[in-house]
Computed example of a mutant assay.
Amino acid sequence: MGFGEYPAEYNPKVHGPFDPARFYGKPDIPFGEVKLGEVGSWLGRRSIGGLPSALSRAFWRWQHKYMLPKKTGIAPFCQLAIGAVTFFYVINYSKLKHHRNHKYHW
């Protein structure tokens, strides 16, 4: 699957209009139903190559739930603001930890 192309499993006659938040592949067994002897093969079916697709689907699910409804509330903007604050705190933590107030004992 190249950039901007439909997944190979997508069939417009079967699935209808394309939804970027939906996985069109064959569903796998949920982790809760995996037997102990099958854990190795179940983990082997997980690949790093599927991570960008999973992140894209998660982004589109968030868009459909919070940003694209007609009457959107304040929730997506608060989520973005809290996410930005957290991200910048994490990347600047090494500089911020030197500005702590220490109590020196004599």
Rank of each mutant, 00 (worst) to 15 (best):
G2D: 01
G2S: 05
F3I: 00
F3S: 01
G4D: 06
A8N: 04
A8K: 06
E9R: 10
E9K: 15
Y10D: 04
Y10R: 02
N11T: 06
N11C: 09
N11S: 11
K13D: 15
V14Q: 15
V14L: 15
H15M: 08
H15I: 06
H15K: 11
G16N: 06
G16H: 10
G16E: 07
G16S: 10
P17R: 11
P17A: 12
F18I: 08
F18N: 11
D19H: 10
D19I: 01
P20M: 09
A21M: 09
R22G: 04
F23N: 14
F23Q: 11
F23E: 14
Y24N: 09
Y24Q: 10
Y24D: 09
G25H: 14
K26S: 14
P27S: 12
P27R: 14
D28L: 12
I29N: 15
I29P: 04
V34S: 07
K35Q: 10
L36N: 01
L36H: 02
G37S: 09
E38L: 05
E38Y: 00
V39N: 04
G40D: 14
S41D: 11
S41K: 09
S41P: 00
G44P: 04
G44Y: 07
R45H: 14
S47K: 08
S47P: 01
S47A: 13
I48L: 14
G50R: 10
G50P: 03
L51V: 13
L55A: 05
L55V: 03
S56P: 00
R57F: 13
A58L: 12
A58G: 09
F59N: 04
R61F: 13
R61C: 06
R61N: 09
W62N: 01
W62P: 00
Q63Y: 10
K65S: 11
Y66L: 10
P69C: 13
K70C: 13
T72L: 07
G73T: 14
G73N: 12
A75C: 05
A75R: 12
F77A: 05
F77P: 02
C78G: 01
Q79R: 01
Q79T: 01
A84R: 00
A84L: 05
T86C: 07
T86D: 03
V90G: 02
K95I: 12
L96H: 03
K97A: 04
H98A: 08
H99T: 03
H99I: 05
H99E: 08
R100E: 02
R100S: 05
N101E: 12
H102R: 08
Y104P: 07
H105Q: 14
